[in-house]
Design a protein around this nucleic acid. Structure first.
Lengths: 129, 129
DNA sequence: CTCCGTGCAAACGATTTGCACTATG
DNA sequence: CATAGTGCAAATCGTTTGCACGGAG
């Protein structure tokens, strides 16, 4: 089954790669609509789901409400602001000393996710004053 | 401001502790309704939010749709099944060799969350056949 | 007696789906 | 030309909120 590359799929993928950070479905919707005004939000959702399923992009489901999608699938972690629910990338070299189990409690482990929880710069200022 | 302990708050807390695993709001709703049939789902949500805010229980926001709540606040990680979105506890001793930063990219780090992603036993069987 | 907490229903935000139509391979 | 993908609107799911009433302190 070859991947059918529609113009909307193309643009969604391009814009996501161009942005170099994770975006939610409707942030991407706003961006894509500039080039293709008649695209529907449902199509954005369907394509993000599809692209993440075939591994071309990463789906990111951290705390808070909306899922994010990310074209850079590898090698970074995330910080989540407890106050405003903002999510940022962390490029921090973490020595991973996990036991080399690929099986835990009956689960086949296919990945690990390290997530930092904290207070973002903006919310620090808000709290201080 | 003393904590006002209503009967519904009491039961919600008890049942969550009794169950010894994390539950979603409406799983707990079903359980609590057996003892208190007229309780409303909104009350369950409001109390879970409240109890987690004052630190008596833990709120867990991993991948997937629903938030989970957990009376055992400490010392375990979670596995998330990519297929059925089940979440389980992992009691696995992980040597944490993180750099001792408490500040990353402007964020004040207040916590870390390690989450495993995998395929649960049930879904492994489904996939095999 | 004073508020905080409740039940109910309605509102909400994010995501999904049914359908008839379009366009890719 | 078959069938996967689209746009639209309506449906769904989890969660939150406004309001009038009830019970804890």
């Amino acid at each position: 089954m070859p991947i059918r590359m529609t113009s909307q799929r193309q643009i969604i993928l391009e814009e996501l790669q161009k942005s170099k950070q994770h975006l939610t479905a409707d942030e991407l919707y706003v961006i894509v609509r500039e080039k293709m005004p008649r695209i529907s939000l449902a199509t954005v959702y369907r394509n993000l789901e599809f692209l993440s399923k075939i591994g071309m992009i990463g789906k990111l489901e951290v705390g808070g409400r909306q899922k994010c999608f990310d074209s850079d699938v590898l090698g970074h972690h995330h910080v989540f602001c407890v106050q405003c629910h903002r999510v940022d990338n962390v490029h921090l070299d973490v020595k991973e000393n996990y036991p080399s189990h690929d099986m835990v409690d009956g689960y086949i482990i296919i990945g690990r996710k390290l997530e930092f929880v904290g207070l973002c710069p903006r919310c620090q200022k808000k709290t201080k004053r």
